[in-house]
Amino acid sequence: MSKRYEIRFSGAGGQGLILAGVIMAEAASIYEGLQAVQSQSYGPEARGGSSKSEVIISDGPIDYPKATIVDALLALTQEAADKYSVDLKEGGVLLIDSELVTRQPAGNFKVVSFPITSTAKNEVGREIVTNIVALGAMVALTGMITRENAEKAVLARVPEAFLELNKKAFNIGYEKAIAALG
């Protein structure tokens, strides 16, 4: 049977997590030639409330579209980190925003942390691209998709006026994750 790789983007509604998952899945499915399914769950609120977006990547057909044991997890709130880190696979990777997740969950997984939201705000220039900074970091940490294909998928999804902003956000996220890995 084909091998599943499971990624979860989690946090609060309004952080752009669903879009981050969609771009990751598109990059895998359309640009990388793998199979991918993206699904989501969120509350009825437009902002706030919990939100998660899951991406399953495989070299074969994907039956169950939701995560079973997560290989890589992004948590942009303390609540998400506490709730979902228990689903992480042994040896998996957890990426957290170091300023929003102050109590670091412990377990048999690698934790990578940097101030994701502040990076978007101060280094890229707009807080709204937090999800793209996080996506860049997740692409680096998961290694399922090449940096080039992921960047193509990002640029295919954003309005022309914001191409440079998103490109910068994606690449800063990618570099920061590599640096944080040490």
Binding site: S29, A36, V37, Q38, S39, I62, K66
Partner: peptide, 9 residues
Amino acid sequence: EIVAHMRER
């Protein structure tokens, strides 16, 4: 809802 909101190729 899962099938309706899920994305696939």
